[in-house]
Design a protein around this nucleic acid. Structure first.
Lengths: 340, 340
DNA sequence: TGCAGTGATGTAAGCGCTTCCACCCCCGAG
DNA sequence: CTCGGGGGTGGAAGCGCTTACATCACTGCA
């Protein structure tokens, strides 16, 4: 049987249709310089032969890939998944393919990002993945880059100015609002649970937290208690914290940490008001007060800005910040009436 | 300043190093046919020039992409995200890139899948995305395909036999176990909430459900109540169901549906034992009895089988089924002692 | 001293496509 | 009746790489 079936090329279509490959190419891409009957014939033959143009050939000839990349640290937890989803949707709509790269904190990330760069016309780079020097290098080579959930890179960097753009959510402002909410409950000794050095997002949240505390007279905030992003890390850090100290309230860097802290408090039999961030699905069931971010929109927006960069050479708003909305449930100390 | 920076090619490296492009190519890919000093020089120059080989050129010359694709219906909810994560990890480890394609139930999915096919050396196609005829067409062209969470295609299909493989979890068996658990509680009138026609996974779960009921004398199962996969759909369907009828217990096609049904029961003030599927994070907080699937492993396994297909021409086990584990919490009617 | 063998390098032929440019034919205007 | 012009088509030159094959300079052995 027909094993060893070689892919059909434009040459075979041309031959069978009795025209040159130039004409086939033109007919296929809808050029107006092809006579009606010729076009018909070529199209019919291409269909009969199930011809599909080679992507590599096309990319090489055109000098572009019709593909975009996205680099993120992880996909567990809904945050990144939603962002990627929003991104993919828009990019696909624009007729381009999507390449993904997860760094997992892998050490070889830089090499992989560079490799990715050679396959795409532009890419989105999220926080907690690779350093600014890598981004700068991409920009130097003229590759359009959108930074997502991370601050702009040094604009002094060579030609980076018009080739890298940022999209973020308002971490600082929301953290301030949330902190003020906590202060409004009368809490004064607040601790921040999460590592501001781990990600730009967390850094922003911590900054807003401190800013709000700065405006409150008697409020105090010890050093942040650093911990990783998962439930277990939150549980461990909170257990340690609560046995050593008893803050009035705890602001957690994200929902997973908060969920872990909630469990720690429950097991220790103490009641500590706390808040999360992201509004993951489990947050509702745990009654977690948190902050909802427009994750999907974030991804979609990044895709749009990247498209600006790729096809128009520059992006509309160079830096964009999306608003977030606090979701008040019960974990912050609000009565059960707000639950659900 | 240096705008209009053309990408540096192998020719420039060759020229600057005083050798031919063949030698540069060899040096770069570590061929043993290059003298030590020459190699050093080429490598140094390539580094100075920040040379990165053009992927399109390489792909065209080598006749392969060093990239794999994956097609899935969605990314919201942890299920697909975890699968993709496991997949990406393994594929990246194998030194290949990952292209993703979400169908969203888009009508143009077929065209997009074909387009994807022209960019990869093989791909994973999940359930609920495109029909078997599309898979068959890919197989006909000799493209390695791994079917994930969907049954094998008709093996009679031309040359598909050695080029498509499947990876699944044991839906039927687990559904039977779970159903027997429900029967063990004394429940007799059971209804299945979810649409067996919507996805092969659900079909399997429903089949196991019916099989278990078939072995129980007095048990009855009305027609399944069909509904989509999200919380709201589950809520709506369950509300309708519970006001019209009062089954002894409900088996939901996945956790989201179960979560919606749980809310419906709560709001109606009725107590209906029910179960979910997937063990998403929120399930723990809702006390949902469910089934845990090794999602990440599923993705990883698919990646391995695909690699078998691509580099060895055939996959180890042609069809593979991963075990799942029931997670008994309280929603099924078990006492609170198992809660956590 | 000569020659086969070997290692290092260069030459050039693709890979499959797009597109510039040349070409040809046919039409209408002078 | 001739000739300029334009639409339709083919020829061919790349795009940047890999690799089979040719080439060349040595080495070591007869």
């Amino acid at each position: 049987m027909g094993r060893e079936r070689r892919a059909v090329t434009i040459y075979q279509v041309a031959e069978r249709a009795g025209v040159s490959i130039a004409t086939v190419s033109r007919a296929l891409r809808g050029s107006p310089l092809v006579a009606g009957p010729t076009r018909q014939r070529v199209l019919r033959v291409a269909d009969e032969l199930r011809f599909r143009p080679s992507r590599a050939g096309r990319s090489l000839a055109e000098g572009q890939h019709a593909a975009n990349g996205i680099v993120f640290p992880d996909l567990s937890g809904p945050y990144y998944a939603e962002v990627v989803l929003g991104y993919e949707e828009v990019v696909a709509e624009l007729g381009r393919s999507v390449l993904i790269l997860t760094t997992h904190g892998r050490p070889h990330a830089v090499e992989k990002v560079l490799e990715l760069a050679s396959r795409v016309d532009g890419m989105v780079v999220m926080g907690r993945t690779v350093g600014d020097e890598v981004v700068a290098r991409l920009a130097e080579n003229g590759l359009p880059v959108v930074l997502l959930a991370r601050p702009p890179i040094d604009p002094a960097a060579d030609g980076a100015a018009d080739v890298v753009t940022t999209v973020n959510t308002d971490n600082v402002g929301s953290a301030r609002v949330l902190t003020e909410h906590l202060l409004g409950h009368g809490h004064r000794r607040l601790v921040f649970l999460g590592d501001p050095d781990e990600s730009p997002d967390v850094a922003g949240r911590h900054a807003g937290f401190r800013a709000a505390l700065g405006g409150a007279p008697a409020a105090t905030a010890p050093e942040p208690v650093r911990c990783a992003f998962d439930v277990d890390a939150g549980y461990a850090a909170a257990t340690e914290l609560f046995t050593r100290d008893r803050p009035d309230a705890v602001m957690c860097a994200n929902d997973e940490i908060a969920l872990g802290a909630l469990r720690a408090a429950e097991e220790l039999g103490v009641r500590v008001p706390l808040t999360g961030w992201d509004d993951i699905m489990a947050a509702r069931y745990a009654g977690l007060t948190t902050v909802r971010q427009p994750m999907r929109e974030l991804g979609a927006l990044a895709a749009r800005r990247l498209d600006d960069l790729i096809s128009r050479g520059r992006a509309q708003p160079r830096h964009q910040e999306l608003p977030t909305t606090p979701v008040i449930r019960t974990s912050c100390g609000c009565g059960d009436q707000t639950r659900r």
